[in-house]
Write a protein that binds this DNA or RNA. Structure first.
Length: 421
RNA sequence: GGAGAUGUACCCAAGUGGCUGAAGGGUCCGGAUUCGAAAUCCGGUAGGUCGGUUCUGCCGGCGCUAGGGUUCAAAUCCCUACAUCUCCGCCA
């Protein structure tokens, strides 16, 4: 959510920023409503001030034995008037916030204009895609041949875009999860969190999944809960409606969770394999940072995610998303893309973003520099550290051998208890 | 799922319709005492948010878990929701 005061005081800056996203939103309408709102508030508060002063007289006059019926009936009229005004203010408030909730974040100035992921800017590359001396198989073929991935059983039990992992496949997924959590909590200084997998509507609004993207989420029938699309939602909302202490910043959490996405609108894409599932595992990194150094925190968060790929010897590159590919809530995002032989290209495995105050304002997450200072909104950041299913896929594909086996990256051997599968 | 209790500021806590935006503690800040400190004593502040403004201040609205309602007037009465605790039931 953008700051209404920013829109009020500098509408051209806001419009300019949103133009990058080709977003046509009602800034002018907001300005009009805002003005209307403030004039109604002024009127209502003036009356209330009189009400408060005058009704204090009532008990005093009563005590003196005077007649208060005249003043009481006058107060009644005032009360009716303010009630009416307050209803109008509420209506306008609702309209304003409904619009505000659908306005995307303003991109950081470093974010270049672009239409699609084609225009993303490559920042750096690590490792080289392997030259296979044989025809490499896609991970879904490896998975089927080795009996470690079974999407058709999941189709029978649940439906499309679900997978059973089995035997060494299930163990590999679990090994990767544990490895990632250990690295982030032991080496990178994140506090481990295991969050709820369901959240209520306000949490989804807080991190920006709602109200605009309700079709992408799974709603739990008969409740007001949503299945989390990412641990970002519960973990960021962990500090909702709080005022944090500046000396505790940055606060850093890592969380494993299953993630649930309806994937509305991606019918026919990535239909095979682990790339696009309704349910997948992910380790998420979340930071609450001082606005003064949040972009440094974004760099280090991205590095923390990259470190996993380095330790696993997987080739990857980092791109900065252009405005057209940037998520609704983000001011700036680095995608980390791992080399996926079956796709013949780099595929997203992590998305690391700085939301600046966009989520903090929605979720009410503030901090104070000093005890007597006014609270300010924190900057929230997050990134996958990493998507586990896609990591499994990348390992199966990148480390497959001609004889059909898959060697296990050194760092995972102790978690797997074997050097190859 | 059933029954009951509770929800007041940073923490504890008083308060059943009007002079209570909130007693009293604690915390915190300043001072006295002391070589210094502890203890003690004196004094002071009370969070947040939305408006206005002649803007490092001042004025006003809201605000006693949240949302509604009754009333000229609500922390106080009524309704709903949520959370916490205790007991019962069920259960990994």
């Amino acid at each position: 959510m953008l700051d209404i005061k920013l829109i009020r005081s500098n509408p051209d800056y806001v419009k300019e920023g949103l133009k990058k996203r080709n977003s046509k939103v009602g800034i002018d309408e907001i300005l009009k409503l805002d003005e209307e709102r403030r004039s109604l508030i002024a009127e209502s508060e003036q009356i209330k001030s009189k009400q408060n002063a005058d009704s204090k007289q009532i008990p005093i006059l009563k005590k003196e034995g005077k007649d208060v019926s005249a003043i009481m009936s006058e107060m009644k009229q005032l009360a009716e008037k303010t009630k009416l005004l307050d209803v109008q203010v509420k209506e306008i408030d609702d309209k304003i916030s409904a619009i505000l909730l659908t306005i995307p974040n303003i991109p950081n100035e470093k974010v270049v204009y672009g239409e699609s992921d084609e225009d993303n800017v490559e920042i750096r590359k690590y490792g080289e895609p392997r030259n296979f001396s044989f025809e490499p198989k896609p991970h879904w073929v490896i998975g089927e041949e080795k009996g470690i991935l079974d999407p058709s059983a999941a189709g029978k039990v649940t439906g499309t875009r679900f997978t059973f992992y089995k035997g060494m496949g299930a163990r590999l997924e679990r090994a990767i999860m544990n490895f990632m959590m250990d690295v982030h909590s032991n080496e990178h200084g994140y506090t481990e969190v295991l969050p709820p997998y369901m959240v209520h509507r306000n949490s989804m609004i807080g991190t920006g999944q709602l109200p605009k993207f309700e079709d992408d989420a799974f709603k739990v029938y008969g409740t007001d809960f949503f299945l989390i699309p990412t641990a970002e939602v519960p973990v960021t909302n962990y500090h909702r409606e709080e005022i944090l202490d500046a000396k505790d910043l940055p606060i850093k959490y890592c969380a494993y969770s299953a993630c649930f996405r309806a994937e509305a609108g991606s019918a026919g894409r990535d239909t095979r394999g682990l790339i696009r599932q309704h349910q997948f595992n992910k380790v998420e990194l979340v930071k609450f940072a001082d606005p003064k150094n949040s972009y440094e925190e974004l760099e280090s968060l991205t590095n923390d995610a990259e470190d996993i790929l380095k330790k696993l010897d997987l080739p990857y590159r980092v791109v900065r998303l252009c405005s057209g590919d940037l998520g609704f809530t983000s001011a700036m995002t680095y995608d980390i893309e791992v080399w996926m032989p079956s796709y013949g290209k780099y595929v997203e495995i992590s998305s690391c973003s700085n939301f600046e105050t966009f989520q903090a304002r929605r979720a009410g997450i503030k901090f104070k520099r000093n005890i007597n200072d006014k609270p300010e909104f924190v900057h929230t950041l997050n990134g996958s550290g990493l998507a586990v299913g896609r990591t499994t896929a990348a390992i199966l594909e990148n480390f497959q051998q001609e004889d059909g086996s898959v060697t296990i990256p050194e760092a995972l051997v102790k978690y797997m208890g074997t050097e190859k599968i």
